[in-house]
Design a protein around this nucleic acid. Structure first.
Lengths: 348, 348
DNA sequence: AACCCTCCTCCAAACGTTTGCACCAAGCAA
DNA sequence: TTGCTTGGTGCAAACGTTTGGAGGAGGGTT
């Protein structure tokens, strides 16, 4: 137990460096030596110490994910496992492991990012959101760690990113509701300093304005990305004297909260209130009524982010770049569209 | 950028050891020195290299999770994010990070576990399932790495575990169906070599036998933990000349597959076929009809596993122990119970 | 015999920490 | 003066690898 490279060397009658080269499949080592060393390794059940190796190689074959301090809320959103699955998929094929920064002991997200960057435990990081003037991006830059952000950084050209065209996506979903005849449409978004919230709000606004409808600030609500916020948002909107007939929610979880609130207050969906979401999580299909949602391909978002990061690790001189992932509106019953032949309509 | 302890020492006019002691809050260092050193650290934006530290301390403050080779399937089951959330919660408060073993390059689960154990990148591991004669348990033992398994190891007293009383849980849900009048009840389980499958099968069998019903092997089906398997299982059961009127599925994802298959083949749930699941994932409540499910407190399972592991890390001489987490049947419409006042019945 | 390859292997320094021990200065008692 | 604390700091070895360059053995050419 606990054998190291020296033990193996001793037993095989070679030097530690030879053992190391056997591990690295260095061609300078003869087949006989290599075979003998490998046998000893098996005998001793030797596995190289990755920590020591990382120390000298200045690389850990590990991708870091910064879990925000709002960890509970974050892990509860189905967005997370799906994006993680994408990241894991790319990491896996490249032979990389994943490090989740969860420990906080009083540190804020920025400090934890700096620590992760400097601690050399990871070769690069994936940031899962982008905020307006995001300090995390500066910190990543300052610490010179390869970084990919999922979302759009507000300063173009500083860090690689993977994102949807959120403005267009929100435009599309809003336009869809407008086409269905809605004129007063509410918007329930995530935190106001998230770029994604702003982009989607912009798309929503543009769609309205193009139809000559002026955006009513009373119809806008923003909260965190959890069900309760969606619920509160809907309650606020329903309390208005001139209440909306439809709501664009910026996240499926928000949409579910909104639907629940509406249902509990006696409104039927979609007859009294049309609702749409974002992400097209599995629940969307099975909800009652099934939720119309903008599929932003979360899995692909994660997969692409990891691939981009791995690319940069392989060739550090590569310049930063951004990749936009497609979106697609999945129409179901919650928006009130008459879609007898659409997905999940019951028709085959 | 990339400053190390020597740079700090030089600039502060002390030796590296003093800097190290400042970091460790060693009382032998005077306040003046400490303050001066800390200031230099800030100036240089110094963060200690966790890799070097791990190497000498033989500890990484990191918990390892072995993601099975069936990674895709695994991450897609809602069980995973929930158990991860529990683990993260415990890890977080103890100041531990999380390492996910995803990289495989041709290694099987056992090799990856051995590697994780020996690589010293993690201080302990959490195994997410237990199989009959599980080689992983032996490997963990052989490599002397602190381990907690979620599930029941078949050799008692070798490794700490966190589990439900799966036999009792399956007994309870089967008894519930029997109480509703069902006499022919199918069983759709996960992989046959998973202890959890066997335990739940045992509970199911016991409930039947206590009512004098002999277990019909044709009513038993097992597959992997994904929707498709549930679907196939249901198709098989429905094809029987003497088909069951109810099915106990060993996982909600299996239950969903089963419900979908039944629905597609023209059976109404619960009238023609009652269905129950395990885990009570969020989807269960929202499915149509809502799924009766055994809530096994997955979050708590993860949380407790991590806590147990952390305990062992803190006091290595501690003997192995097992903890059983409570379960609770959540009755909804899919089992056909007349539960007008039950949860999600529509009544307030 | 001298020289030069070609192969294979080894030496030793480096990666950035921690920590047992030695050391030193200052204060104080004898 | 000597000797003993006490408090603060430094030295150097260790953790387990990797890797450039040195070195040695064996064979072939001149």
């Amino acid at each position: 137990m606990g054998s190291n490279i020296k033990d193996v060397a001793l037993r095989a009658g070679v030097s530690p460096s030879t053992v190391s080269r056997v591990l690295a499949k260095n061609p300078r080592i003869s087949k006989e030596t290599s075979d003998r060393v490998r046998e000893v390794m098996r005998d001793l059940n030797y596995h190289p110490n990755a920590v020591a190796r990382s120390l000298v190689k200045q690389s850990s074959q590990t991708l870091g994910i910064l879990i925000p301090n709002t960890i509970e809320q974050f892990l509860q959103n189905p967005f997370f496992p799906e994006v993680l699955r994408g990241i894991a998929q790319s990491a896996q094929t490249a032979g990389y492991d994943i490090f989740l920064s969860t420990a906080l002991h009083g540190l804020d997200d920025g400090q934890r990012l700096a620590q992760m960057a400097r601690s050399k435990r990871v070769d690069g990081v994936i940031l899962l959101t982008a905020r307006v003037h995001d300090p995390l991006l500066d910190i990543a830059l300052d610490n010179g760690i390869p970084t990919v952000v999922i979302g759009r950084p507000d300063a173009e050209g500083t860090v690689s990113w993977v994102n949807n065209d959120n403005k267009k996506a929100a435009y599309d979903v809003t336009a869809h509701l407008l086409d269905l005849g809605h004129r007063r449409i509410g918007f329930i978004g995530g935190a106001q300093d998230l770029i994604v919230t702003l982009d989607r709000l912009a798309g929503y606004s543009q769609a309205l304005e193009e139809r000559g409808i002026v955006v009513d600030p009373y119809l806008l609500y923003s909260g965190e990305f959890h069900e309760e916020a969606g619920c509160q948002g809907m309650v606020r909107l329903l309390a208005l004297a001139d209440r909306p007939s439809a709501v664009v929610a910026s996240d499926d979880v928000l949409a579910f909260g909104a639907m629940r609130a509406a249902g509990e207050l006696g409104y039927r969906i979609p007859e009294d209130m049309a609702v749409t979401g974002f992400n097209d999580i599995p629940l969307a299909k099975l909800a009652n009524p099934p939720l119309t949602s903008m599929n932003v391909n979360v899995f692909e978002l994660g997969q692409t982010a990891a691939r981009l990061l791995l690319e940069q690790l392989a060739r550090p001189q590569l310049e930063v770049r951004g990749i936009t992932v497609e979106h697609e509106l999945v129409v179901r019953r919650s928006c009130g569209a008459w879609a007898p032949f659409g997905p999940d309509s019951g028709w085959v």
